[in-house]
Amino acid sequence: MAFLEARKLVKEYKRRGVSFRAVDDIDFSIDTGDFVMIEGESGSGKTTFLNLLTGLTEPTSGDVLISGKPLKDIGDEELSKIRNQKIKYIPQGESLLSALTVRENILFPYTVGGLEKPSPERLLEVSDKLGITDLLDEYPSELSGGEMRRATIARAVINKPSLIIADEPTGSLDSANTSRVMEIFKNIASEGTAVIVVTHQKETLGYASKVYGMEQGSLKEAV
């Protein structure tokens, strides 16, 4: 049984009164250690697909299953716990909490969840790898776009979750930081975490073990 699975997944939206499928009948599955990348034009439905996978959006039809269990059968508390501990989602754009320092942002999931806080050594290990150790006590407003991005990635990878889902994680990064981040994802996948990365930068696709292309809501495996 796959860790995460999508079956006949459909999401319809209305535009000027006419409904269209942002996600159109997708079957998909991912298992531990898989490093999947999804490539597609802007507007092709990538973000919508990820929101469905994480249960943040309800599908129009079809199912998402985690360890064989449909998300629609899981209550808010439990689903929240899954997002807190097992499925780490790195959304597109900025997603640090402005009232908290970088350190507090990285540790925030432990504040709301039941897990024990990671050791200071683990925090340093991750922040060193991402080059943000000097920024730990700054507020997000002091950071550049690339620095914020790396802090967000640190927040996701710190507890070695079962699945990391990243929506265009390298969008605002230069090529040095892009390869740094992709290396981190690759390492994490090799340690057994499943990874889904959405991108529109074709040059990063080489890191993946499996590549999909997204077009007008349909997902197709690239050959």
């Binding site: 943040l56 929240s80 716990k81 925030f108 999931p109």
Partner: peptide, 16 residues
Amino acid sequence: KKEFAVLRILGTSSRR
């Protein structure tokens, strides 16, 4: 709104 969305993503329940 965006901050609330981030809270959801990080696994904060509606109740929380």
